[in-house]
Design a protein around this nucleic acid. Sequence first.
DNA 1: TTGAAAGCGTTACCAA
DNA 2: TTGGTAACGCTTTCAA
Lengths: 332, 332
Amino acid sequence: MGRRVTIEDVARAAGVSRQTVSRAINNKREISPITLERVMNAVQQLGYRPSWVARGLATQRTHTIGLVVPDITNPFFPEVARGVQDAARAAEYNVFLYNTDESAEREHQILYSLASQPVDGILLFGSRIDDSDLTTFAESYRPLVVLNRRIGHPGVGMVLVDNYAGARLAVEHLINRGHRHIGMLAGPLASPSSIQRVGGFRAAIEQHQLPLQDSCIVPGPPTLDGGREGAEQLLYHHPEITALFAYNDVMALGAVQAYIESGYRVPDERAVVGFDDIWIAELVHPGLTTIRVNKYEVGYRAAQCLLALMEDPMQCPPAVEIGVELIIREST
Amino acid sequence: MGRRVTIEDVARAAGVSRQTVSRAINNKREISPITLERVMNAVQQLGYRPSWVARGLATQRTHTIGLVVPDITNPFFPEVARGVQDAARAAEYNVFLYNTDESAEREHQILYSLASQPVDGILLFGSRIDDSDLTTFAESYRPLVVLNRRIGHPGVGMVLVDNYAGARLAVEHLINRGHRHIGMLAGPLASPSSIQRVGGFRAAIEQHQLPLQDSCIVPGPPTLDGGREGAEQLLYHHPEITALFAYNDVMALGAVQAYIESGYRVPDERAVVGFDDIWIAELVHPGLTTIRVNKYEVGYRAAQCLLALMEDPMQCPPAVEIGVELIIREST
DNA sequence: TTGAAAGCGTTACCAA
DNA sequence: TTGGTAACGCTTTCAA
């Protein structure tokens, strides 16, 4: 292994000062072509690679961002993460990944620990802490971009998926298909996107003057089992419900399973529409009708917003709006 | 925002030296209970959080590992990543995530850049560079754990999925089902796990003295389209083939789609078995017969191995062996 | 265009 | 048990 090659070694080899080496490798142009070449040769020769840690300490910037998601195994997030990575890579940033497991406490821990971590900015997706906590954090902290939350604060960026419109599209589609008793699997109660989707759901139902009891909206974890159990519960308490709008595709898939296991045919007897349009939505049978969200775009644009914010931390960037689209398949 | 609270501020507030503060926050016990308490009070009061960057520069360790995967949107990897994250978190390590896109060149870039990055160790999954490059890298570098490669080098850990046995299990299952003309979708040629799976495939075929032409083994990207195209190609050139063993579940799913679109019934007329047992394998219709790999375990144990290696970088840890299991569903 | 000196915030080493 | 001083490897500031 040997000792690390430092800027000092390069300086000595090239017969210049450390500072000159620094200028050379950072493309400052207050340097003569001849010295530049000499330095670069020495860099090559010695295989010098500047230390990001030392540089980070000197500049107070580490070229690193933290990506916080509920759970990377939730199929919504890998694509988002991919978008983030690609945007980050283009700007030569590294990405730390953290999972909160939908736990506000865990999220707190991570956010708190990130304060001493070498990150220049944070991407917070699927946040479960409450608004006041988040604002406090934003105030004491560096640039931050949040998903599906309105935080009007300098240095904080927002990416907003049009959950409300998406939910309405879903419900109206079900109504068009002739359903009059529609339930909802609401997902995690603490999730802003859940609140927004429930809002759109209610609005559409009311607008069409359909019956709606609160007990027709059941919360649950955004997982296959969460969807299955929610559907079973509704089947038991509200057998009149013939169609379900699910918080996300995974829950929708669970619901379809529950229906089929209970002997119902989908879509003939029971219909289900999901949200997100994860890649398997078109592979399963019946194909899942859903609201498409461009997940890669969510990640990519969030990262871009963060990068801009890190350039100028005091700005209030406009919210990044992500549109949605109804994708009709066989489950409705 | 204000200026950062440093160890100096704490020292002043507590009326001790920086060194004493350092001892206090690092739980060294060469410190009297009274001073410890005084220091900790000051830490609380000022909201002091040590800087990982400064600490990293001083200790030459950043408590960070780099996780390199081909593509986090390939459904094999989120679970692996999750295992890594959980193991890393337990040891208070951060995880950088990088995607190579199955490109050896890109992998090179990442590995090379990681040399100046603040990581204490690297987890390399789905590597596509050749053995000599990898060995060179391992030599000049810090602890490293690779998946599905035998690199006998101090400081390098190995996690080996039993691809060979898995492939044999798959093929023997197909043979038991009465198939005599079996093809393989081999996945990425440069992938060691592909080579191992092809090896197991050939061995099983030969042992049962079944016919096998090289053209019955077609490579392709490990994606849905890769599987679909591979299956179509085989359908065209080798219509006698009634069963397919696919490099992974995603390709297998693509193959099933291709068959169904071409009017074949699965499993009655054509059978397919995959590899990995990703979560949707049991959701699709027909459910996919596959070889189960505990992906979370792969990540978790790889990370543990790396953590041990970072404690003692010169050891040659035993390879971590990951067993596999045949899961029979409706596609065969 | 170049170089010297002073940080950046921490820990390591040695002396008190 | 404590504190002083010197790293760690780089950039920034200012002077030449």
